[in-house]
Amino acid sequence: MAELLKVGIADYKVSKAPDKIVSYGLGSCIGITLYDSVSKVGGLVHIMLPDSTQARATENLAKFADTGIPLLLKEVLALGAIKSRLVAKLAGGAQMFQFAGTSDIMSIGNRNAQFAKETLQKNSIRIVSEDLGGTYGRTVELDLENGLYKIKTINKGEKTI
């Protein structure tokens, strides 16, 4: 029986085909997936902030790009994925509100994206596709059968990367 696993904010899930992993309503947050197409093992982490070294509350590793990605990596490997076969996909990192004079917190989506990519590079994981930025929310769903990453929006339709 295929299950639909839900990932909340600052949360992650790993599993195998035929399961799917979904995360609802990403704004500036980013949903990063890792997937091994041979073992059909993969996972999704929903990070909220870029850098754990800049924050005071750091117990939850899944909250940050720099700690959430290594955590997800460890968990998919433990479930049988092979590192050299892993590929990453990213979605999210929007800027939901436009203010005159963009403050730090408003451009958090960009910084999340940048940190997530750097962390993936540091861990030598190839990024195969991404859907980042914009000014709209996204709901994302990873299909562990084929690694396809479906992105739904309210005003900008639906796509698969």
């Binding site: 904010i9 309503g25 704004g27 500036s28 509100f97 709209y136 929310g137 996204r138």
Partner: peptide
């Protein structure tokens, strides 16, 4: 913004 509640609350 007119969008998903989760995305708006992200801010």
């Amino acid at each position: 913004a007119v969008d998903m509640a989760g995305a708006i609350l992200n801010v």
